[in-house]
Amino acid sequence: MHGEHYVPEPMPSLNGSRYAVAWRRFWLSSLAAEAEYRLNFILATTNSLLALAGSIFGLHLFFRTGYRLGGWSWEEALLVMGVFTLLDGFASALLNPNLNRIVSHIRDGTMDFILLKPMDSQFWVSARHFSLWGVPNVLFGLITLGYAGKKLGFGWTEWAQGSLPVALAVLILYSLWFALAATSVWFVKIYNVTFVLRSFLEAGRFPISAFPQPSRFFFTFILPVAFLTTVPAESMLGRTGAGNVAWAGVTAILLLLLSRWFWRFSLRFYTSASS
């Protein structure tokens, strides 16, 4: 707009802090845009609350008849549900709004501008947007965790044991989502493939041991859903050894590196729009 009066603020030269500044501005502008739709936010919160009630009801159906879902007690299974809700909120707040846009950047050729920016392109496409719609689920996930943890008599140790696996779960989720979103370089016509991933991840609402053997194998080794929700809950319960957490760490790092490599690889096939 008022180009002639606009004096760009000098960018801090330090590399890390430059990213921090950029990220802060990204979020502020996203929040400003979302503030336009306040009624929507209320509706989304209501919907999250309804969905949480429904999920808890659905989980309760398994326990009604005295069945212990995969050998887990009601409160323990609630921990899994809590971690799932938390991750779901994270995905709605940060993954969905950003990574679903990659396909349109590629289709419309606006990826050119992103690649030209003096900033890592993976960072830009992953961090540019922030959606408030995910925040209620993050809160409800924490509340569910808090409730179940209180019933189970958790102290600081239990929460501390759980925090690293939850952080690893966030990394795994991001890497999977990002790698899949990056395939849009080839599949421009397909609106986005991430909703297929999202539907498979629904399995993470339940402890992995509740599944029959073949799907347990699938959700551990092919699509690591087990590391997303079951391993964090087991760590809080002190039921898993350091071995499983180490595996989660290895998986997270490998997937993160893979997503980074895959992004660079796929960009080699990006030819901009109309060329």
Binding site: F62, L69, V193, V196, S199, F206, A210, P212, S215
Partner: peptide, 20 residues
């Protein structure tokens, strides 16, 4: 086909309920 594939939830629940 991807849309159809994203309707996987009944199969997830099938496994859980059959085991239960």
């Amino acid at each position: 086909y991807l849309w159809a594939l994203s309707g996987i939830m009944p199969f997830i629940l099938m496994g859980l309920w059959a085991k239960a």
